[in-house]
């Protein structure tokens, strides 16, 4: 006899109270990151990294800015989900676990906003 409620069975939720959204989002962001990171890395390797003018001129172009923002947001999202799983698996103790998850969330959102803001400054000024 199952102790699961009929509603719980229909929703497919376990003890976590949610379904496969976390797992699926991790996969969707990883697929998106394949072309985004390949494009960015290969482009960057062809530039003069020491030259402020060259880097600024490249990142300031509209499409480069758009895809760099997409890259930053997808990286932040994927990294946020991944670090969450690692903390949940290896950090025991509710206080330490919750604190680390909070720090990770704040850092990831801050880095994502900083990256987007920086690219927008380069693109519009």
């Amino acid at each position: 006899m199952s102790l699961q409620t009929p509603l719980g069975r229909v929703l497919g939720s376990g003890a976590a109270g949610q379904g496969v959204a976390h797992w699926w989002t991790q996969r969707v962001t990883s697929v998106a990151l394949i072309p985004l990171t390949l494009w960015f890395t290969l482009s960057l390797l062809g530039k003069s990294l020491q030259s402020y003018e060259a880097m600024r001129g490249w990142l300031g172009q509209p499409w480069v800015a758009v895809f760099t923002i997409l890259l930053s947001l997808t990286l932040a999202w994927h990294s946020w989900l991944g670090v969450q799983v690692v903390v949940e698996d290896y950090v025991h103790g509710k206080a330490a676990k919750t604190s680390l998850l909070l720090v990770s969330t704040f850092l990831h959102f801050a880095a994502a906003v900083a990256a987007v803001f920086a690219v927008m400054i380069l693109a519009v000024s």
């Binding site: 990142l59 690692v86 880095a111 900083a114 990256a115 803001f117 920086a118």
Partner: peptide, 30 residues
Amino acid sequence: HRITGVAASVGFFMFAWWLMALASGPAAYA
């Protein structure tokens, strides 16, 4: 895979910092 994933996360923070340095001007970038 997990260790390199966490290391890459730190790399992402460094990437955001590098973009901010570039946006802050030539002196900050240098």
